[in-house]
Design a protein around this nucleic acid. Structure first.
Lengths: 188, 188
DNA sequence: ACCTGAACACCGTTCAAGT
DNA sequence: ACCTGAACACCGTTCAAGT
């Protein structure tokens, strides 16, 4: 990558971060190009779709979310064995708490600066949604094995509840709504 | 209202119903005007905002939802008295079932032809959201008095959960998600 | 190789001119 | 009193022409 191209790329991402924060994820791409002082063609060369630009802007945050999921999944108290299928033991409680904690982090991300848009639409090459889904799967599976959540819950349920709440609820109510929704997901 | 104006009005609504069903609630208003064979100015004269047009298209459906809420709220088994605050009695169960049934109807409406958009944004003069909210309040209050739902639940929680699910979940999964979410709302 | 920016087809919205 | 449709300022996106 040539030096001027690299500079343009970085400058576009930095500008887009500001513009998305101001105007939301539907912000005008021409406006981004204008403020980054490049032609619209240059923006489209680097980021052929809006998704691609959103992903570039939110990449770090998504990395952090994946890392958090990995940490939480690696904690002790994972499996509870067959005898603990009803989730009465401490392992079930910890698995449920880990899932709750991660859901809260995902909700916070989705609510901040339109992080949701970057996270959801699938995108060849990076595919945030798939990565987050994989990270979350470990947590959900562990909770299922420990009997901490309803047996008919799947990973996508978690995503759809969290993203739905992020889209509709005012910021102050979102946590409360998540606690309601998780109340139906968790057991006991 | 002059005869030709009335005819234009009706024709615009009928055309919009088709176009919204085809292209979703973000469909081009110029396209609606074109297909209704009126100038864009005529459309804007009758419907100063997109909301106003959406409301006109979905008015009947919203009326039906309000009527359903009224019926369900008028059913027997409403209050359980102070002694039944833990929701153990049949009245609590019925109040919970009524709330569940109405939530399912609201979900169905929100999922069909972008009914959500018409329902939500507030709109002086008709204000679907306010009307639906009032209708739902009776059901939620009754459920609260009967102890059928968590004490910290408010009407808006119900709306935000249902609309969030309608926005994010694929049609086939929506009912399952609603059952999860209501599992956290309901008691027992 | 990469950038530029004029150009295209659209959008929502308005408003002078008509009937 | 109501309708018309050209016009305006925008949008996303493309692509010949430049360096």
């Amino acid at each position: 990558m040539r030096a001027d191209a690299r500079r343009n790329y970085d400058h576009i991402v930095a500008t887009a971060r500001v513009v998305f924060a101001e105007d939301g994820p539907e912000a005008s791409l021409n406006e981004v190009a204008r403020r980054a002082q490049v032609g619209p063609g240059t923006l489209y060369r680097h980021f052929p779709t809006r998704q691609a630009l959103l992903v570039a802007v939110f990449r770090e945050r998504i990395d952090r979310l994946c890392a958090l999921a990995d940490e939480l999944a690696a904690e002790p108290g994972g499996d509870g064995g067959a005898g603990e299928a009803m989730g009465a033991g401490g392992a079930g409680r910890e698995a449920g708490e880990a899932l709750t904690a991660w859901s809260q982090a995902l909700l916070l991300h989705a609510q901040t600066d339109g992080g949701l848009s970057a996270t959801m639409g699938d995108d060849p090459g990076f595919d945030c949604h798939t990565r987050l889904r994989a990270a979350a799967t470990a947590l959900v599976d562990r909770a299922l094995r420990a009997g901490a959540i309803r047996a008919d819950v799947v990973v996508d349920d978690l995503f759809q509840l969290v993203t739905g709440i992020a889209m509709t609820a005012p910021k102050e109510r979102a946590e409360h709504l998540l606690s309601l929704a998780l109340g139906g997901v968790l057991r006991g």
